[in-house]
Amino acid sequence: MKEEIVIAGFGGQGVLSMGKILAYAGLMDNLEVSWMPSYGPEQRGGTANVTVILSDKAISSPVLDTFDTAVVLNQQSLDKFESKVKPGGTLIYDPSGIHHLPTRTDIKVVPVDAMGASIELKNAKTYNMILLGALLACRPIVPVDAVLRGLKKTLPERHHHLLPLNEEALRKGMSLV
């Protein structure tokens, strides 16, 4: 098993932390993991992306050109990464703010209205967990239980009261697919 994932969007959308939770879930599931961020002046408003690799074998390159799965959260990221999904792969995107829809027919294209769902949950910060749920529904690469344990590991203890809300968001995201 090997899954090569890119998550891309605006800084502040939770792109890096979504990747981090996924990487920790892989750790919990005894997989080899690699988390390679685009680092730099990419705070709120700039673009940010992260490459996450989960594998049952040792991982060679943490830098990739093509991906099994892409999760894209803005137009720039869609423009950049649609062509980089391997044939037969999966492209998950949030349609809010997307003017030019994906056109490829050789991949599975999954729109997920995570923005709308986060409004329903009355908490914009649940956005990335909703998308992570959608990702897991499309690509069940790690068990939900591992994600929840991974989340607990990444979240400082003072935020642990938010764990149930995050689980709700994760499950809501899974139900959207």
């Binding site: 990487a23 080899e32 993991v33 690699s34 390679m36 961020p37 991982i59 943490p62």
Partner: peptide, 8 residues
């Protein structure tokens, strides 16, 4: 790369 990436 090796400074910023996370792995086991």
């Amino acid at each position: 790369i090796v400074g910023q990436m996370m792995e086991k």
